[in-house]
Design a binder for these strands. Structure first.
Length: 472
RNA sequence: GGCCCGUUCGUCUAUCGGUUAGGACUCCAGGUUUUCAACCUGGCAAGAGGGGUUCAACUCCCCUACGGGUCACCA
């Protein structure tokens, strides 16, 4: 019984994509579920696309979101290094076997020539494949030219064969070899391509399950062939359904936020994001929808991974985030909201008041920063429009407001039932009720006729401030 | 275009041949709160089409349609 080991292998191109988050999460959950190991490997074999700080960025996002690795750049491990750019020697060692066995060959064609055959084939509506121009060079000639000419190393795809592999979610997949190009394995700059590096590393790192996005399905035959050439046992392949834009195309930047950081900045909780993304392409089989990470770790199963792509529906994410905001401990939500209040220059030093304010606001929002707009009247002087003032200055309103100011001032502790009693008392004393009673009160206390109910308002404001506001 | 994968309410999804096809988001209505929100209840809304197999098909098979992915010295 060999060990279960999975990996997340992003290329460091800047930020963590929500699709990447989902892939990482499923890997993580599977590892947790079966007691396996989770590896982070940075696929930085493209020198041209290197982005400064991208890896640090990735790491910090995972840190915030609560996904951790057993092996990787920060925690090390016996299979390192975990940057492909630091494993060049390893790839060179393995390409040699391919070359010796005739399963790979050097190619000296210029990119111009490649471009030319591609356009020619496209014009003839043929699949643009390499014409194997360099395949039949004699060994000695090739050897000689390798000394002073730039070259790549290509994989020699067998003729007329059907490559069959079994995907854990899709079952049997078969692709004819005629469809596969003689893939470049080593680039002119000596770096490996994804296809080669990922196979070598997955094997050397002992990866048992390759869990990745469906976009890799068509190139999987190249990988299985490589395993065959190298004489290695195949890992299990698990291709996850794609995350989609509302128009069903592959989730992309063009149609909205796609970086996990963007969502975090907008006030989505890591827990909600994880919860939401977990349910895209997987479900527990019952009707539960709100899950903590710990619960997911327990319930996750590859058997319940979907085949079809899933649209990333922001409306549902918002709802789910609202659920988390309402159900998390109030102190935690307050802590998350704090920076926004401080930035607005509000004095939130009275913690009792702040918690009450947050308790009121959290019921009305989908994201953290939205709490601010629902809380402003508790911290700032109220501003009244002409019509507001008209309402407040009316005889009836003044009667209500004065009555309350007077009564409230009688003592400092008012319970909710007592406030409700005061409402009854007001009706009895003044005969004013309904809208005529509640609108002036709420307007005076909160600056709007719609909002929190009166007991809540007084609870948050405190008796002294309430009395002050009622004297208008 | 070739190849590959996919297809249940608008969206996320349940259903392992026999169900009034269930839940959630959105939307609508009602309740609660004499307001708003939250919350509760209810409602609208689905098996792409056509052939088989079977006593019975959303479920198994085939074809068609549609959607997507992929065809780089990017991953």
């Amino acid at each position: 019984m060999s060990e279960i080991k999975v990996r997340f292998a992003p290329s460091p191109t800047g930020y963590l994509h929500v699709g990447g988050l989902r892939t990482a999460l499923f890997n993580f959950l599977y590892a947790k579920k079966v007691g396996g190991k989770f590896v982070l490997r940075i696929e930085d074999t493209d020198q041209k696309r290197k982005v400064e700080g991208a890896t640090e960025n990735l790491l910090s996002t995972f840190d915030k979101i609560g996904i951790s690795f057993d092996e990787g750049p920060t925690q090390g491990g016996e299979n390192g290094p975990y940057f492909q750019s630091q494993r060049l020697e390893i790839y060179k060692n393995h390409i040699k076997k391919l070359l010796d066995d005739g399963n790979a060959y050097p190619c000296f064609c210029s990119s111009e020539r490649l471009e030319q055959i591609r356009t020619e084939k496209m014009a003839k509506k043929e699949t643009p494949k390499y014409d194997r121009h360099c395949l039949n060079l004699s060994k000695s000639e090739a050897q000689e030219r390798m000394k002073h000419e730039p070259f790549v190393i290509r994989m020699k795809i067998p003729d007329d064969e059907e490559i069959v592999f079994f995907d854990v979610v899709r079952g049997r997949v078969a692709i004819p070899t005629a469809e596969i190009d003689d893939q470049v394995l080593i680039k002119t700059d000596g770096f490996p391509t994804y296809h080669f590096a990922n196979v070598v590393d997955d094997f050397l790192m002992g990866i048992s399950h390759v869990i990745r996005g469906e976009e890799w399905l068509p190139s999987t035959p190249k990988h299985t062939l490589l395993y065959r050439f190298l004489g290695w046992k195949l890992p299990k392949f698990v291709h996850l359904p794609l995350l989609l834009n509302p128009d069903k195309s592959k989730l992309s930047k063009r149609q909205g936020d796609v970086a996990v950081e963007d969502y975090l900045k907008k006030g989505y909780l890591p827990e909600a994001l994880l919860n939401f993304v977990a349910l895209l392409g997987w479900n527990p089989g019952d009707n539960q929808e709100i899950f903590s990470l710990a619960e997911l770790e327990q319930k996750f199963s590859l058997k319940r991974v979907q085949k079809g792509g899933a649209v990333f529906d922001i409306e549902k994410l918002k709802w789910m985030n609202g659920q988390w905001i309402r159900n998390e401990k109030i102190e935690k939500i307050a802590e998350l909201g704090k920076p926004y209040f401080l930035e607005a220059n509000l004095d939130i030093s009275d913690n009792r008041k702040f918690l009450a304010v947050i308790e009121n606001a959290r019921k009305r929002v989908d994201t953290i920063p939205e709490m601010l707009e629902h809380s402003l009247p508790f911290y700032r002087d109220l501003e009244f429009s002409e019509t507001d003032l008209e309402l407040l200055k009316s005889e009836s309103s003044q009667k209500v407001v004065k009555f309350w100011a007077e009564k409230l001032a009688e003592k400092t502790n008012w319970s909710e039932p007592e406030i409700k009693n005061l409402v009854k008392e007001t009706i009895e004393e003044t005969g004013i009720k309904g809208k005529d009673l509640f609108f002036p009160l709420r307007l005076a206390l909160f600056g709007a006729t719609q909002g929190p109910d009166i007991p809540a308002l007084i609870e948050i404001l405190g008796v002294a401030e309430s009395v002050k506001r009622l004297k208008i």
